[in-house]
Nucleic acid binder design. Structure first.
Length: 462
RNA sequence: UCCUCAGUAGCUCAGUUGGUUAGAGCAACGGACUGUUAAUCCGUGGGUCGUAAGUUCGAGUCUUACCUGGGGAGCCA
């Protein structure tokens, strides 16, 4: 008999038919006459209830069916006599694929703390919460590709290994095949990378943006979606050393087009989750965050506030608040400032634009005022900055003077500068932190719980 | 990296001004129960109190260092 997934069974299983399901035991309960098994196969958060007439089965087999064990069940699909589920399976035969010693299996049929489950990341997939989170994570990855594909964007694979630290987005992980215990030195006494694998110093990427711009300057609209690495010693519930980022880059988009796309994109993804992840979101709304669904709907239904950095500073100064970090034009906004704007003043997502150029990256388009750039940050409640982007500086002279002012390695950027030498065009783009999006959509509070295997300082287990 | 809180049974925690044999709930195990929903009821086993050093007649409790984790901050997505 062909196995049917529980999700399909719940949606379209025919009462009265013979079915075969395979999955992992969540709980078993009952008495010496009848036993109930809650079986989950990961296809849905819903369990199928298996009803076992004890008289029909070997006692030792039933003894081995414990929490965590893997079994296959053949039986008749019937309407449930009990409350709590509409259908169930009257088992006629059970095959035990893998036992699970109940005295040793870490997961119990009770709630566990997130910290405990994080230490058991190899097994946490088997919990309701993490099953829901990772099904939603998949759906969001799929929706991202669908959104851009439907809009005519091309998925561009930018390199994971790079020789440029051009953006200066953060500390980088070195990539080398040199013998770390016996490093070759040059005449100046520093490491000689000429004999390294690539013949030069290389790192893991901190952003695919610069390469993405090359693609946009020919293909029009592109996006990247891949892993990103930051060797920052950041220990917070919002940072990872290895995370996934989506970076669209669009020719002929100005900053307003860029903001329109960012807002439409995020709203599309949330709508997609609301429509396609109902069971999982319903569970998270009940167990993790009672305001989750309400908040998601609110974001979809309301326009994001768009104000300039300068206006934001005025609001903060007029608030009468005492800030731990001083507010003033030219200073970067701190978490407490962003939080005030999003969570108290406007009570909705906010897009801040036109930041002082001295606190932003070299590639951002310079405004005519000579002191601000066409940057945008999308700020979300509870998350902070979820998107950062800008219109790019397409003017060669302005770009090169900025590179020199900031003492960037001009020589290494020759290929980037070539896009401004040959057929330069106005263009824009942004970066969306995938895990921060998943945080917002699932209502989870720690970023380590929305990526299967978190990489953080002092932690690369699993 | 900084500030702060915590680390005691498989899990979540209690443990008084330092004092005899370190407790509870849940889980596990054994038993009871003819339809259960994290079933219920009765019973049983289970501990190098994060690690190291120190103070003391005596340390789960006090001191110092280190390790690990949570929360906040910085850096950022």
């Amino acid at each position: 008999m062909k196995r049917i997934k529980v999700k399909e069974l719940m949606n379209s299983g025919q009462v009265g038919s013979e079915v075969l399901v395979k999955g992992w035991v969540r709980t078993k309960r009952g008495n010496k006459n009848i036993v109930f098994i809650a079986l989950n196969d990961g296809s849905t958060i819903l369990n199928i209830q298996v009803v076992v007439d004890v008289a029909l089965f070997d006692e030792n087999l039933l003894k081995d069916i414990t929490t965590g064990a893997c079994i296959g069940v053949t039986g008749k699909l019937v309407e449930s006599q009990g409350q709590g589920q509409h259908i169930e399976i009257n088992a006629t035969s059970i095959e035990l694929y893998g036992k699970s010693d109940a005295e040793l299996y870490p997961l119990q049929k009770k709630g566990h703390s997130m910290e405990f489950l994080r230490e058991n990341a190899h097994l946490r997939f088997r919990t309701n919460t993490f099953g829901a989170v990772f099904r939603i994570r998949h759906s969001m990855a799929f929706a991202i590709h669908k959104y851009f594909n439907d809009k005519g964007f091309f998925y561009l694979h930018t390199p994971v290994i790079t020789a440029s630290d051009a953006e200066g987005a953060g500390e980088m992980f070195h990539v080398t095949t040199l013998d770390l215990h016996n490093l070759p030195k040059n005449d100046q006494g520093s490491v000689d990378f000429k004999s390294d694998f690539f013949g030069k110093e290389t790192n893991l990427t901190v952003s695919g943006q610069l390469e993405g711009e090359l693609g946009a300057m020919a293909l029009g609209d592109i996006y990247t979606f891949g892993p990103t690495f930051r060797a920052e010693n950041s220990n917070t519930p919002r940072h990872l050393a290895e995370f996934w980022m989506i970076e669209p880059e669009m020719a002929f988009y100005d900053l307003n087009d860029n903001m329109d796309l960012a807002e439409d994109f995020v709203k599309y993804l949330i709508s997609y989750a609301l429509e396609n992840c109902k069971d999982d979101l319903g569970f998270l709304n009940t167990m993790i965050d009672k305001a989750l669904l309400e908040r998601l709907k609110f974001v979809v239904e309301n326009e994001f506030v768009r104000i300039s950095y300068t206006e934001a500073v005025e609001i903060l100064l007029a608030s009468g608040r005492k800030w731990e970090y001083q507010v003033g034009w030219g200073r970067d906004l701190q978490a407490e400032h962003e939080r005030y704007l999003v969570e108290e003043h406007f009570k909705r997502p906010v897009i801040l634009t036109d930041y002082p150029r001295d606190i932003k990256a070299f590639y951002m388009k310079q405004n005519d005022d000579g002191r601000t750039v066409r940057a945008m940050d999308v700020l979300f409640p509870g998350i902070g900055e979820i998107i950062g982007g800008s219109q790019r500086e397409e003017d060669y002279d302005k770009l090169i003077s900025r590179i020199r002012e900031m003492k960037m390695p001009e020589k290494d950027l020759w290929w980037y500068l070539d896009t401004r030498r040959y057929g330069s065009a106005p263009h824009s783009g942004f970066g969306l932190g995938f895990e921060r999006l998943i945080l917002f959509i699932t209502g989870m509070s720690n970023i380590r719980d929305v990526i299967p295997f978190p990489r953080t300082p002092k932690n690369a287990e699993f």
